[in-house]
Amino acid sequence: MDAILQARVDDLRRYLPEHSVPETLALLADHFPGRVSFSTSFGLEDQLISHFIFEHELPIRVFTLDTGRNFQETYSTWNKTLQRYGQPIEVVASQAASLEKMLTRKGPNSFYESIANRQECCHIRKVEPLARALAGQQVWITGIRAEQSANRQHMHRAEWDAGHQLLKVHPLFDWTWEQAWSFAQAHGIPVNPLHQQGFVSIGCAPCTRAIAPGEDFRAGRWWWENADAKECGLHHTLGHQGLDPVVERLPG
């Protein structure tokens, strides 16, 4: 990784634990004006970050990927979020031609037939739309928490995403599920009702189930697959490479 970029990532890693989530988000918005985006899927963590952005009126773009296969409870939470904050949430959808081609050849449930088919569906409905949504951005904010899976425990609060060529920041990285839930309840934040039915990780309806006590956070995703690290491709691989500096060093 470029030395200046590495220094910026290191600065962020030091800064995040010492400051509140709103302070961190404000810093990013200030240093990367008009180039900071947050992607929400209306799960608990994402609802908290949306709350911080909207309540503090931070100039951070909020968008969601509408896969067309979401739970009705997720759509309901989406509507309640719009009503609660009165702020727009940009929608990014699949490319119609690619989706129509896949459905014509393989039908609506091909993802159950093989990992390759499932990855193709995820790519069309999520990965490719995300790439379009992040084009030209410099910071991608996510709701990732370390305890969500063993794979995510090896990540950091701030990283360089080589695939999308931008900084990736997880403001809630060290938060526990209990902390997030308590905060949402205390501040009247709309919460997806599926969380109270045993769903901790919520994706597309055909690909997500509730988990039993003691199961891994990601056990409910693509449960028919025998895989250790269950990711759709949005957060699966992170690499490091150089980038021309765009702002001054962040405060340490």
Rank of each mutant, 00 (worst) to 15 (best):
L48T: 02
L172I: 08
L28I: 02
E147K: 00
L103Y: 05
S37R: 12
H195E: 04
A219V: 02
H195W: 07
A29I: 00
N151M: 12
F63G: 05
K80M: 04
Q119R: 15
V247S: 12
A133G: 15
S94G: 04
M102G: 00
P108K: 10
E120T: 12
V246C: 06
A219P: 03
W181L: 15
Y15M: 08
I53Q: 03
G43D: 10
N151I: 01
H156D: 11
P251E: 08
T67A: 07
F71Y: 08
V200L: 13
S37Q: 09
A146W: 00
D66C: 09
E113Q: 15
A150Q: 13
R8H: 10
I60R: 10
V91H: 13
S149N: 05
A135K: 14
Q165N: 10
A180K: 02
P206W: 06
R8C: 00
E178G: 00
R221F: 06
G242A: 12
E45L: 08
Q83F: 03
W222E: 01
I124N: 07
G143C: 05
S182P: 00
A186M: 10
W140H: 15
S110D: 10
P213N: 08
F54H: 08
E231P: 04
A150P: 10
C207R: 03
Y15W: 15
L27Y: 02
A135F: 04
G86I: 03
R249G: 02
S39L: 15
D244G: 08
I49D: 01
F63K: 07
G239L: 11
A96I: 09
G239T: 12
P171H: 03
Q197D: 02
Q137V: 03
R132G: 15
S37H: 05
P17A: 03
A219Y: 01
R35F: 01
T40S: 15
S149Q: 04
E120I: 02
L250I: 08
A212M: 09
I60Y: 05
I49A: 07
E231L: 02
E231I: 07
F54E: 01
